[in-house]
Simulated assay, not measured.
Amino acid sequence: MYARLRTPPAGKAAAAPGGRGALATITPDTVRAAAAEVRTGRTVTLASPIETAPAPDNPHPAGHRLTSPPEAEAEGAGLHFATDHFGMDVHGDAQSHLDALCHVVYGGTLHGGIPATTVTADGASALSVELARDGIVGRGVLFDIPRLRGVPWLEPGDHVTADDLRAAEDAQRVRVGAGDILLVRVGHRRRRIETGPWDAARARAGLHPEAVEFLAERQVAVLGGDGNNDTAPSPTEGVDFPVHVLAIHALGIHLMDYLQFEDLAPLCEQEGRWSFLCVVAPLRLPAATGSPVNPIAIL
């Protein structure tokens, strides 16, 4: 069905051209309801550590250096400040990041039919990560697909289907609804820790594009994965990132790539619940196509 890329039935999930995309499904009422998910007050990061060393999946690692004080001055008398400089490729295959709605250009347009010419070398004048400047706060739901299948991780190239998502709902006794932040674990980070990095651009587990219909039906606000969310190799001829195209371009769903759920999943298992308050705070980068993020789950 997806041999050629086909936009899923959007229904109520479709956003008006431009606007905030699927973030519009997050309302004061959904935020208040999400706050009620907090029971134990435990907090856990969903971000991978920022890496500064090259690896097969990270050929352009983040750069970090201390800019002051010089070593000769550090032990001297008086006041000194230690300061840093960071630089990173936001849309890499190792660092946790949020994709803005201007990140995907398809057929010469962005989400909502906005012309691709709004993205230039000077930045994006529409649909930048600034749409999320006030933060993304909602009910997070974690689907642990390796747990569902009884394996430690999905092997590169494997797909998470819509049937997998529905089966995870049943097995974990939780239902995804409008305005939720859906997090799908494929075990990418655990595999990377235990077997070492590999070229994830060529081979990785992710969602099958047909699974995006589930996101549309349930009016998901944000999708996050511990991989790229897209499978490689792509199952869609001529389109390398069909999930990105369908979720971001067609439905206006912000994506979070390369998170890690190895701290969260055991807590969910221990507490016997897979929903929680989730807080995502991207940097204020007014013309950027994405941002590093450190999402926090609060149980």
Results as ranks from 00 to 15, higher is better:
37 E>V: 00
219 Q>W: 12
118 T>I: 08
242 P>E: 12
253 I>P: 06
293 V>Y: 05
105 V>G: 11
171 A>C: 09
233 P>I: 03
33 A>Q: 12
233 P>S: 10
141 V>S: 06
241 F>V: 13
252 G>D: 09
177 G>T: 06
112 G>R: 05
119 V>R: 03
171 A>K: 04
180 D>F: 03
78 G>L: 08
217 E>Q: 00
260 Q>W: 06
274 W>N: 04
267 L>K: 13
161 T>Q: 09
118 T>D: 10
213 E>M: 08
225 G>T: 10
174 V>H: 07
113 G>W: 09
240 D>M: 11
273 R>G: 08
284 R>N: 03
253 I>H: 06
242 P>K: 04
53 A>Q: 14
247 A>W: 01
242 P>H: 12
298 I>S: 04
111 H>Q: 15
66 L>Q: 11
274 W>V: 02
129 V>T: 01
137 V>Y: 04
191 R>W: 04
12 K>I: 06
272 G>P: 10
44 V>A: 07
102 C>R: 05
222 V>R: 00
45 T>K: 05
244 H>G: 06
226 D>F: 09
251 L>V: 01
227 G>N: 07
82 A>S: 14
66 L>E: 15
56 P>K: 01
94 A>S: 11
165 L>E: 04
197 P>Y: 10
48 S>T: 14
47 A>M: 03
42 R>E: 12
161 T>A: 08
141 V>A: 05
97 H>N: 11
163 D>I: 14
257 D>V: 08
260 Q>G: 06
69 P>W: 05
38 V>N: 11
12 K>G: 11
115 P>L: 03
176 V>N: 02
276 F>Y: 13
276 F>C: 02
63 G>R: 13
10 A>V: 14
176 V>T: 04
210 E>R: 06
253 I>F: 07
291 S>A: 12
34 A>K: 00
32 R>S: 13
271 E>Q: 14
11 G>M: 12
152 P>M: 01
91 H>C: 13
209 P>R: 00
265 A>K: 09
273 R>Y: 09
157 G>Q: 00
256 M>E: 08
148 L>Y: 10
128 S>G: 00
256 M>P: 08
91 H>L: 06
122 D>Y: 10
145 I>Y: 05
212 V>E: 07
275 S>W: 00
12 K>A: 11
200 A>Y: 01
205 A>Q: 04
94 A>C: 08
217 E>G: 13
66 L>N: 15
234 S>D: 00
90 V>W: 00
73 E>S: 11
178 A>L: 12
185 R>C: 01
89 D>Y: 06
87 G>H: 09
17 P>H: 02
263 D>A: 10
78 G>R: 09
84 D>F: 09
219 Q>T: 14
179 G>P: 09
52 T>Y: 09
18 G>I: 10
185 R>N: 14
275 S>M: 10
66 L>Y: 12
179 G>I: 05
214 F>T: 01
6 R>A: 13
140 G>E: 10
214 F>I: 01
156 P>M: 02
86 F>I: 14
189 R>A: 14
297 A>V: 05
43 T>W: 11
77 A>N: 09
69 P>S: 03
225 G>W: 00
236 T>G: 06
144 D>M: 15
